[in-house]
Amino acid sequence: MAYHSGYGAQGSKHRVRAAPEPPPLFDDTSGGYPAQPGAYPPQGSDVAFNVNHLLADPMANVAVAYGSSIASQGKDMVHKELHRFVSMNKLKHFFAVDTSYVARKLGLLVFPYTHQNWEVQYSRDVPLPPRQDLNAPDLYIPTMAFITYILLAGMALGIQKRFSPEVLGLCASTALVWVVIEVLALLLGLYLATVRSDLGTFHLLAYSGYKYVGMILSVLTGLLFGSDGYYVALAWTSAALMYFIVRSLRMTSVGTDGVGGPAPRQRFQLYLTLAEAAFQPMIIYWLTFHLVR
């Protein structure tokens, strides 16, 4: 019996089959997502469609333009009214200070008796900023002194086990209200006296806010040395502040219009200045006596 030389050669009933390829581990997505029935559209396509449709609508464009114009007009009106009541350039002038000015002005508030020249300096009919003129009023020291007074009041109340947010808020609001009342009273007095002076609202706020420096010193001395030290510091700071206000306001209000004016007007201006100075110790005592025990 003859045998073929190879198994599975041509003409044989048995043929060798090729092994099937294994299925891929991941689907090929390089060609993009196939369009399948019921599939969701890509995320954001409906939003883009709605925005494009809205922008293509003429009525929508008119509404957007009208809304933008109203917003811009409202913004201009707000800025106009703000600048009408508060001049930002003037406000920046009262905060134009430096470290040297602050140190010298604090020394002047505590010991003003050796100061000689109290006139505010001008350059081309424009008052010099506080950092160039020690006599110029500023709002930096009153603002920082007010914040320091509130913090010191909270510390004093905490030491005495009487601290609460309500009491601290009452101290802050009371101090602020007294300053507002004082400024309004001065403005009314100047209006009734028909005084032509350079004193404005910011000037009066500055002179009224200097009392916070004396209040801080009085409370600190009272916390360190008791009630006796508090009354000594209160007397000293009150006398210094009264002298400072009389010399400053007299040169500013009376000095510009009182010279050569009617005698009753001069007396009224002088009485107004003295009343403002005499009112300071009472406010300082009222706002600080309950903090020292």
Rank of each mutant, 00 (worst) to 15 (best):
R131Y: 14
V213T: 12
V177T: 10
H83I: 00
L192Y: 13
L224W: 07
F279R: 13
V16Y: 10
I159V: 14
L186V: 11
D125M: 07
P24G: 02
S68C: 12
E276S: 11
K90N: 12
Y66Q: 11
A56V: 07
L157T: 03
L186N: 12
M59G: 14
Y113F: 15
V254Y: 10
L54V: 00
W118K: 01
A19N: 09
S197C: 12
K105E: 00
S68W: 08
T194Y: 04
S238L: 04
P165Y: 06
M251S: 14
K80C: 08
R162W: 03
N117K: 06
G32N: 05
M215T: 00
T194Q: 06
T256G: 10
V219Y: 00
G260I: 02
V183Q: 03
K75C: 04
L234W: 15
Q43F: 08
I159Y: 13
G8F: 05
A193R: 00
V259Q: 11
A63R: 15
V219I: 07
A56R: 14
S87F: 06
M215I: 00
G260M: 01
V47F: 12
V259M: 07
N135Y: 12
N89F: 04
Y230E: 01
E166S: 13
L205V: 08
M1W: 05
M215P: 00
F85V: 06
L170Y: 11
